[in-house]
Nucleic acid binder design. Structure first.
Lengths: 193, 193
DNA sequence: CAATAACATACATGCAGAATGTTTGTAAAT
DNA sequence: ATTTACAAACATTCTGCATGTATGTTATTG
């Protein structure tokens, strides 16, 4: 007996996403082959090309899931923060923590931009983690806690710093040193009297 | 009649580097095919594989040339600066200017890290543009002009911001806004009394 | 100091293996 | 009966290598 089509599709897509994530992380997008992915998932390429337009579409779905997980972690960490400046620092630490998931830094920061393009990744990021940073900056600037600066560009510049930190940490760098540096960058933007 | 082997090799490698740059920029590394590259150069794939181990080796040679050009531009711009802090701002602007060369941002900031790996790109960058930033920070910190922070990580964080700025500018963003933001980040690290 | 033999270099051409995306076929669900 | 979910075979294309050839370069000999 066979399950409903809906259940089958859901299970198959989940299996393909999991297997794809594994292979993409270990091999990189270019060297990851669809035969390897479907073999790991225990199915055939027919299933893959039924559910996803092509290899890139599978990759994009994985990227969006990863970005969503990061955004959720940041939101959860900053929900309780009242002070906008403290929320920025806390959100940054939550970001770095979330990015320690195995292979996540490579997926979101190296292969993602190269495969999907920087613009597409920026859009995904804005709808996920980067949006929180931008909103936090706007809030802090509105309350006079931070220097008044172009919010979008400032958020991107800081976001780039956090990204670099996440990559370094994924490569074995010390987390605390990077938190020190990023907090210093944030504090540097604070309004002083 | 034929030229000397040395002259032939030099001309052939220059032609392959130029054609490869063109195709890599317009197509991206993955979609760039070696037949397209050698067709543009007006030679055969035999020549390509004689001078370069594989497609990646050609790409790496192009990347190193681009990174070297950026480093040269930064050094030229900052050579006359006495004040370390002014040198940092000037170097940043020179970097952004140098990165406006067509396709350079994509090569150095998107495809480069994905193809060669972030570590290899970091090494190339350290020997090129990023080294200047780190040295400038150390100098400024030593003179008490900047807050004392881990120089390597601070340089990387700022470098990441400049990279993001270069990408945005390549995508049509306003240069002056980004200079404002990056100068503000630098100023934020300045020692205040 | 020619002339030439011996070798290296630069490149072209053809081939094998593999990967992608498409098409066709089949069984089960709706 | 029709559509969905998947399998399996197919056509195209690319990469890297292996072989072949012509020219440059160096050593040797008369």
């Amino acid at each position: 007996m066979r399950r409903s089509n809906e259940a089958r599709s859901g299970a198959m897509q989940a299996a393909l996403l999991a297997a794809g994530r594994e292979i993409f992380v270990s091999e990189g997008f270019a060297a990851a082959t669809t035969p390897a992915i479907v073999a790991l998932a225990g199915v055939t390429r027919g299933a893959l090309y039924h559910h996803f337009a092509d290899k890139t579409a599978l990759f994009e779905a994985i990227i969006k899931a990863e970005a969503g997980a990061v955004a959720t972690a940041i939101d959860a960490a900053t929900a309780a923060c009242d002070d906008p400046l403290e929320a920025l620092r806390t959100g940054g630490r939550a970001f770095l923590q979330a990015m320690t998931a195995p292979g996540r830094a490579r997926l979101l920061l190296v292969d993602g931009p190269a495969v999907l393009g920087p613009e597409a990744m920026a859009a995904i990021d804005a709808a996920s983690g980067g949006g929180a940073l931008r909103d936090g900056l706007i809030e802090a600037m509105a309350r006079g806690l931070l220097r008044s600066l172009p919010a979008d560009e400032t958020a991107q510049a800081l976001s780039a710093g956090y990204d670099r930190a996440a990559l370094a940490i994924a490569g074995g760098a010390d987390v605390d040193v990077w938190i020190t540096v990023m907090d210093a960058l944030l504090e540097g933007l604070a309004n002083r009297r």
